[in-house]
Design a protein around this nucleic acid. Structure first.
Length: 805
DNA sequence: CGGTCAACAC
């Protein structure tokens, strides 16, 4: 103790060693080192140093240096902390706090917690300053157990009357995912400041309890607490999640009204521009961005990410380069967001470029970044690159394994995904909720109902928490695997539905052609006051189109734009063109395309072309086909449709012309693939394939099926076959279509009377549709076929789609 | 206490 006294006296009158160290480091940095990319630099302000100077917290190198120095001297052995390395005249508590805060500021919460452990070992008390710092680290590490320990000390040391400490406790509970505990804290507080309110609102937003957040905002106003700019940022974030331009504008107005003559800060403007970008209104986002007096790396990140999300890739790239020219360097979150957005829109090239940019510019390939890359490559269907990123690492955690599993799902390798799953377990990693979500969406993707059911029971058996996202994934899986009743049962039982849950259910119903159920749910949503988003309307329009509800469809489209303020995306136009086209209103459909403010894509023109085929309109079909070939010259599906249109109009010369064009271009038709799951394994078939071990038996079965079909009076519809071959061969080609092979395999390998579920990657053809109807009757089976667009339930000789698909 | 970042629905 004496030593401390003496040294502190000694150093109080001289510049502290810390500031000398800092100055030296600062000097070194400004002279030699380029600014590091992986950390945000905190500007070092202090020049002269005296005992009264405010100390900025050092960066991580400096923090570690101080820490190391402390350990080397007395730090680990006694409480005699050498004051020379810290701001002078501080208590031991404050010195610990200084180091904890330094590690926090440099984003090393685990180090902070080590310092805390040390502090406890030497029985230094948690005070009103250390408590919030340690709690912050607990929150970042999601260590609610440690957080509760601090809570205990807070109560023991009588700090529970301190607003600052209580706010930190709320924040900790919120970050650990418990909005309920945070609210308990909030309710118990004797005194609340504006920070308490905004922390609680933020807590609800973070935990996606949007209704509660809105209620709390109202309550805050009713007790006359005015929102600060920071409080409003939480609210803006809340509205950003709603992806609704009309509500976004309302929020913007709210912010302006509550500014109290303050200047709009950079952070709030950034959050507003991010909100607009997420709602798809890039013009507003850009306008706000351009108006920023100081553009920080955060603002740049938000606007570039916004452009990528809106699929304006060149523009996004251009801005990214502008950012670099302005001397603003991307941080880890920048590349992380941009990579995530690339995955979102499937921008593989840009994603690769960002990957190489990272490597070239010395970014530390953290596990988080690697996971984002694996995820992006997976979403873009590039399994090889995904594996290249993850394979070399020996620090793989559950998250990156899960991303890899999803990547193999995307690449259509369900059995490989299963393999990875067991590999992961072999390495001693326990699958968590995230793993299960990804595996279950894989089942949804490939239509593996048995595996999905097994995973569902595994979740219950392992006692994993079925949160809203997992439940949504399960609803989606059951719906997409054809078990719409199971999906609906799960949906009905959940009390805490969010918009994703509603959307999953409505999309499921729409896929199964249950238009009225979708409209019923939509009505229910409106009564409950739940804000539909653009995805909701895709489901609603889809439902109208499958159920032939033309007038309702138009009404919903208007409602979406004028009632809910959503900007229609190309998907919505696709639904509308499909809707009008199916109803035979071809002219109106064409007018709608011409009036679109955005570029129509292949879905839009494809819908028109399909309608032209249905209603035998070659001239408009040509217009659509021309656009389609411009958009996707490598595809011949449209040419095939066009030749079918000419054939039905008996324009044989044109048919021959198109066929020659296909032949000349040397492009192959996208192969049709059908899969069926038997005993948890997915078996996939392509047309006429003979690689399956049971090939012999399958073809015997196929022959039997043909015979029984003929007995039932079925004649093959050979007009759908394109090849220039004779009629008999055409029949053979038809009978080998992949769905018929899958069906034969199913008939052999499942017990009589079992429902068969088949998943097809293309649209089911006319001939297979007619044959399957009869087969369902002949073999007394329910056959559920999921094609590219929707479900067909074949039962007793008829199909749920009413022959309208 | 704050602005860009985490898996689900298209």
């Amino acid at each position: 103790m004496d030593i401390v006294m003496v040294t502190s006296k000694l150093y109080l009158s001289t510049p502290s060693l810390l500031s000398i160290t800092l100055q030296a480091l600062q000097h070194q940095q400004s002279n030699n080192l380029p600014s590091k990319l992986s950390f945000t630099q905190t500007p070092q302000k202090h020049q002269k140093s005296s005992s009264s100077t405010h100390y900025d917290h050092p960066n991580i190198d400096q923090t570690q240096q101080i820490h190391a120095h402390m350990i080397k001297t007395h730090f680990d052995h006694s409480l005699q902390i050498p004051l020379s390395f810290l701001p002078p005249h501080l208590s031991p508590e404050a010195q610990y706090n200084f180091l904890i805060t330094s590690y926090n500021n440099n984003n090393f919460p685990k180090q902070s917690l080590k310092i805390y452990a040390h502090m406890r070992r030497f029985d230094v008390q948690v005070d009103s300053f250390t408590a919030p710092s340690v709690l912050k680290a607990c929150g970042q590490c999601s260590l609610v157990v440690l957080g509760k320990e601090i809570h205990g000390f807070v109560l023991k040391n009588g700090l529970d009357g301190d607003v600052f400490v209580c706010n930190a406790l709320m924040q900790m509970y919120s970050e650990c995912g418990s909005a309920v505990s945070a609210r308990l804290m909030f309710d118990q507080m004797a005194e609340r400041d504006v920070v308490s309110w905004s922390t609680m609102i933020r807590s609800y937003v973070r935990n996606r309890l949007l209704g509660e957040a809105l209620d709390l905002i109202r309550e805050m106003h009713s007790v006359r607490v005015r929102p600060s700019q920071i409080a409003m940022i939480s609210m803006v974030n809340l509205f950003a999640d709603l992806t609704n331009v009309k509500l976004a504008k309302t929020m913007h107005g709210y912010v302006i009204r509550n500014m109290n003559n303050e200047k709009m800060g950079v952070p709030i403007t950034t959050s507003l521009l991010d909100m607009y970008a997420k709602c798809g209104n890039l013009a507003y986002a850009r306008w706000l961005f351009d108006g920023l007096t100081q553009k920080s790396v955060v603002s740049w990140t938000a606007i570039v990410a916004g452009y990528i999300r809106g699929n304006r890739l060149e523009k996004g790239m251009k801005l990214f380069k502008e950012m670099l020219e302005e001397g603003v360097f991307p941080n880890e979150i920048t590349v992380l967001s941009l990579i995530i957005e690339c995955g979102f829109v499937g921008a593989l090239e840009l994603g690769k470029w960002l990957h190489s940019y990272m490597l070239r510019n010395g970014f530390v390939m953290s596990l988080v970044l690697a996971t984002a890359l694996v995820d992006m490559y997976g979403k873009c269907g590039d399994l090889r690159s995904a594996r290249a990123v993850s394979d070399g690492r020996d620090d793989k955690d559950v998250m990156i394994w899960s991303a890899l599993i999803s990547a193999s799902a995307q690449a259509n390798c369900p059995n490989e995904a299963r393999e990875l799953f067991s590999q992961m377990r072999d390495e001693g990693l326990r699958p968590n909720e995230v793993t299960m979500v990804r595996l279950i969406s894989l089942c949804a993707e490939v239509g593996a109902l048995d595996l999905g059911k097994w995973l569902h029971s595994y979740i219950n058996q392992q006692g994993l928490e079925v949160d809203l996202i997992l439940k949504t994934a399960l609803v989606d899986m059951y719906a997409k695997c054809g078990d719409i009743d199971a999906a609906h049962a799960l949906f009905s039982r959940s009390t805490d539905r969010d918009i994703c849950m509603w959307n999953a259910m409505m999309t499921g119903f729409a896929m199964h052609g249950c238009g009225n159920e979708v409209l019923k749910l939509f009505e229910e949503m409106e009564i409950l006051g739940i804000q539909p988003n653009e995805i909701t309307f895709i489901a609603v329009l889809h439902a109208c189109s499958h159920a032939g509800l033309v007038i309702e469809g138009k009404r919903f489209f208007d409602k979406m734009v004028y009632g809910y303020g959503l900007v229609p995306k190309v998907e919505h136009y696709g639904c509308m063109v499909d809707l009008l086209g199916r109803a035979g209103q071809l002219g109106e459909a064409h007018e709608l395309i011409k009036s679109m403010p955005i570029q129509p894509n292949v879905v839009v023109w494809g819908a028109l072309l399909a309608a032209c085929r249905l209603y035998k309109n070659p001239s408009l079909g040509e217009v659509a086909a021309k656009h389609l070939l411009e958009l996707e010259p490598k595809s011949c599906g449209y040419n095939i449709l066009m030749s079918n249109i000419y054939a039905s109009a008996k324009r044989w010369n044109d048919v021959a012309g198109v066929r020659k064009a296909i032949k000349d271009s040397g492009i192959k038709k996208q192969p049709g693939l059908s899969s069926i799951e038997v005993n948890g394994l997915v078996h996939e078939f392509s047309m006429g394939d003979n690689i399956h071990p049971q090939t012999g038996k399958i073809y015997e079965m196929l022959a039997e099926m043909s015979m029984k079909l003929k007995e039932a009076g079925y004649t093959p519809n050979t007009s759908v076959v394109l090849q220039n071959i004779d009629e008999e061969e055409k029949e053979t080609a038809l009978s080998c279509h992949s769905e018929k092979l899958a069906m034969a395999f199913g008939l052999i390998n499942t017990a009589a009377g079992t429902t068969m579920r088949i998943v097809k990657n293309l649209r089911v053809c006319d001939d297979c549709h007619a044959a399957t109807k009869l087969l369902s009757k002949i073999y007394g089976r329910v056959i559920i076929v999921r094609d590219r667009n929707r479900f067909h339930h074949f039962r007793e000789g008829s199909c749920s789609c009413g022959d309208y698909w």
